[in-house]
Design a protein around this nucleic acid. Structure first.
Lengths: 342, 342
DNA sequence: CTGTTAGCGCGTTCAG
DNA sequence: CTGAACGCGCTAACAG
């Protein structure tokens, strides 16, 4: 049975409140009593119960990032960024996993686990806009994700169409004519669709045809899916001389597939990814990729969340904050999987 | 102001207890009242306050993994494994970050954040055995980490010496004679030291000299450190024809460095990593690496934690559990960065 | 089947 | 500077 604050109080011969004051340091306490209290704390091995404090305080000073999966590097890097920023204000980040499915995400919310935190950064991949519309919660939520959601919530996303356009345009400008869209999709509304849109737009702008046979969907296992996409192109004899992979992880699989097929990068096939993961610079050859403005996105996400958590200190009540939808600035990072621009 | 259970009770014209019973489903409730309650819940947008439930219940059904950094792939993969197992028993995993430093780890503990969870899987990299010895907590803790810690706590670790020996022995058996130990250290007691020990042992067993000039330390940024290690070897004219990188992430950097230097893998230099990350299979060429038995380690960690959380249901009280120290089974995964065994 | 009582461990309020 | 009472929101135990 762990010791409670009143155990400590009794042992030190003071009241519970004095113990609390000593521990929080909020009020001045006489040096004598202070030492007696600390001695008792040490003696009993007392440990503060944060659960109780949180209930009392009504806040936890903790933000949660709900990511699709723990083992997706993009979210690991995002979490690290967010964590660093939150530490500056004495708060904490914890990460939970939704399972990358509609059900997992809905459960993450309905289970009210979110109330354990002062705010939620929810990465949406499985839920439909309709699900989001129906979402009822009093917890401050900012959505992260590439599919446009109802404007009931703030949302931070990458500039997907422009990023995809940039990537594809670069491939076309450096000589590729048959650019596969690995991870793409010709329907739906999610990330896969909008990046496919950018791929198509680049072709239009260049006055070149975009062949839907080059749009290859991915599943849940990006690395293997990227490799499999190349295997399939080769197996089916579809000609291609460029790949726009919708994530760097897919691109990593693509590079493996190309090597396996004996295709040289960038001589036979050029490759561009999307995300600019830490590791992408270190692939061989280095991966040309779209950088989605990680730092800006992290800044935006926390700014939006903070104004929900601390509702307009200046303005009066009833000043409902208008949900915002912000977009990170994309840029192309040129490395070895593409040829130099002519 | 979010609605509370008693708001719901009042609106439905029942007692708070009845609301609780409806929501938990633990007791039978009349169909009429049940519907009235649910209507009121919906009406008020009531959301359960888990903090209060946790305080009341004395547990949270949540385990925390304290990892050095969010953006380290090894821990992302570990978290995914642990999470999958915990879901089977209706529990949750959350991940926190310690900052890979002694201070960060100590704070993670002293802040008593741990009381928010039923158990803690603490990855130790910065704390010294002395720190651990001094650690006082009533929270169930299992240590993860490669440095041997005092046996006050359970500990799960890889078989580092044997893994390193296997990796190095394979390099020597396939013709390498000057094997760099990237990430190594000739002093200390941590992971870097024990794997260096294995590197040395393999040389002894093969009757070959181990040159300390080939032991290159790493810093905090594994990818860049791996590349830098190669740059340094080349710059200083130290001859080498093999690399044992102490993590797959370091190995990724090493491969980038070798490519940059125009050295062919595995013809000029063979490379072996350690960890068998998901991505390692997809590097070009595929990374030969030591697999530390991920699944077994995850199983052990949770088994040890569970017996602390649920102290010996069969045995009586006072049956203190003896701390265990278990080790995952290592094996070598052969891929393209090494030549076939002769 | 439903309501009452009591308290989880802490911190705010107001006296002393 | 210190103490006593009350309540944060929920649930176990017992009444009725």
């Amino acid at each position: 049975m762990p010791a409670t604050m009143s155990d400590v109080a009794r042992a030190a011969g003071v009241s519970v409140m004095t113990v609390s004051n000593v521990l929080t340091g909020r009020k001045r306490v006489g040096e004598n009593t202070r030492r007696r209290v600390l001695a008792a704390v040490d003696d009993l091995g007392y440990e503060l119960n944060l659960t109780a404090r949180h209930l009392r305080a009504g806040r936890t000073d903790t933000i949660v990032l709900v990511a699709p999966r723990f083992d997706h590097p993009y979210f690991g890097e995002l979490a690290a960024r967010l964590s660093k920023r939150l530490e500056r204000t004495g708060r904490h980040l914890v990460v939970e996993q939704s399972g990358a499915s509609r059900e997992g995400e809905l459960e993450a919310l309905s289970l009210a686990r979110l109330h354990l935190y002062d705010g939620v950064l929810l990465s949406v991949v499985g839920m439909t806009p309709d699900d989001v519309e129906r979402l009822r919660t009093t917890v401050p939520v900012v959505l992260l994700g590439e599919q446009d959601m109802p404007d009931r919530f703030d949302q931070v996303r990458m500039d997907n169409v422009e990023g995809a356009r940039l990537a594809t345009a670069h491939l076309l400008a450096t000589g590729s004519r048959r650019v596969a869209a690995v991870g793409g999709s010709t329907s739906g509304r999610g990330m896969t669709f909008v990046r496919t849109l950018g791929w198509r737009r680049a072709h239009e702008e260049a006055g070149l045809p975009a062949d839907d046979a080059l749009v290859l969907p991915a599943g849940q296992s990006d690395l293997a899916d990227g490799r499999e996409a190349v295997r399939r192109l080769v197996r089916e004899g579809t000609s291609f001389d460029g790949v726009f992979a919708f994530t760097d992880t897919l691109a990593t699989g693509v590079l493996a597939g190309l090597a396996e097929a004996g295709l040289r990068v960038p001589d036979d096939v050029q490759v561009v990814g999307f995300d600019n993961l830490d590791a992408s610079e270190f692939l061989v050859p280095g991966l040309t990729t779209v950088d989605p403005g990680h730092d800006e996105m992290a800044d935006h996400a926390l700014r939006l969340l903070d104004r929900l958590i601390d509702p307009s200190p200046g303005a009066g009540a009833g000043t409902a904050v208008e949900p915002e939808r912000v977009t990170g600035p994309v840029s192309l990072v040129l490395r070895g999987t593409t040829r130099p621009a002519p």
